[in-house]
């Protein structure tokens, strides 16, 4: 029966399949162009000369290529280059803290259970339900009361906290995925909790990578938290400093400088995504399944 239906179907469907493929490629190419065009445009604009980047009407492609907008990042009064350093410090701090805290918590939750650990896990997961945006005001007061107002450390702690529900969830699953026998073998060899954990790190690497990856994106791309929690211009992050290029003087925006800053802001995200695409999408899905 299947043998009979197979040729019949392929006869009926083969022309449709090639038509399908054409439609898929044409529509897919149009969609891909639409989505990639804004990124390509900002990249090309950033390599125009400062004058050409702000000319009306704009040129589609740079007449002359220049890196003047990038060298202006270090010389402009807005001090964009310094803010890149701040963003990097905050992203680095948040990644390290998120990875370490969720590694320890995941270990405790899955291998060293204690009374109340399940409840704590539920409470931590519940933190994912309340968005940062609606409790930002009291968070600001809390940081102020412990002397962390307008500090990069304060922002790192806040970003890490709101990253924890996801990263602890991921790390707990990473621990649970290691078979019991492997732990027991480590214990038989006389390894204590610390040495067992170290021995398991290679097996936990994918989970750690996912936790660190998402912490990086949320810290590097954070705008709302930095806008509110950092008040000292010396600590402003890249996304916040870029507003100073458009605010106040909407008529005379330095579009070249703005767009080179935007490229600096998105380049690490795109590069990391391209390298770790599979990891990123599967991490997204594990969050989605939750």
């Amino acid at each position: 029966m299947p043998a009979l239906s197979f040729p019949a179907r392929s006869w009926r469907q083969r022309p449709a399949r090639t038509l399908d493929a054409t439609v898929v490629y044409v529509m897919g190419a149009i969609a891909a162009t639409l989505f990639a065009a804004p990124l390509a445009t900002v990249l090309m604009n950033s390599f125009k000369t400062p004058a050409e980047a702000s000319v009306t009407p704009p040129t589609y492609f740079p007449h002359s290529w220049s890196v003047a907008n990038y060298s202006a990042l270090t010389t402009s009064s807005a001090n964009v280059a310094h803010s890149v350093g701040n963003s990097a410090i905050i992203a680095f701090g948040a990644v390290v803290l998120t990875v370490v805290v969720s590694l320890l918590a995941g270990y405790g939750l899955s291998r060293l259970r204690f009374r109340g650990s399940a409840v704590l896990f539920t409470i931590i997961l519940a933190a994912a339900m309340v968005p940062f945006q609606v409790i930002v005001t009291p968070v600001f007061i809390v940081l102020q009361s412990v002397g962390l107002a307008s500090s990069r450390l304060g922002l790192i702690l806040v970003i890490t906290t709101f990253q924890l529900p996801f990263s602890i969830f991921v790390m707990r699953n990473a621990f649970e995925a290691i078979p019991n026998e492997i732990w027991e073998a480590a214990e038989m060899d006389g390894a204590g909790p610390a040495r067992s954990l170290l021995a398991m790190l290679p097996l936990l690497a994918p989970g750690l990578l996912t936790a660190g990856l998402f912490a990086f994106f949320s810290a590097w791309n954070d705008f709302f938290g930095a806008l509110i929690l950092l008040n000292d211009q010396a600590q402003f992050t890249l996304p916040v400093v870029l507003t100073s290029l458009i605010n106040g003087a909407r008529g005379s925006v330095n579009w070249g400088l703005l767009q080179s800053g935007v490229v600096v802001s998105i380049a690490p995200c795109i590069v990391i995504f391209l390298v770790l695409q599979r990891q990123y999408v599967s991490g997204l899905m594990s969050g989605a399944v939750k």
Partner: peptide, 17 residues
């Protein structure tokens, strides 16, 4: 030990959430 390992997470979620 498990409780101690959870402490940093609990401290952060408690204090900042």
């Amino acid at each position: 030990l498990g409780a101690a390992l959870m402490a940093p997470a609990v401290l952060l979620v408690g204090g900042i959430f």
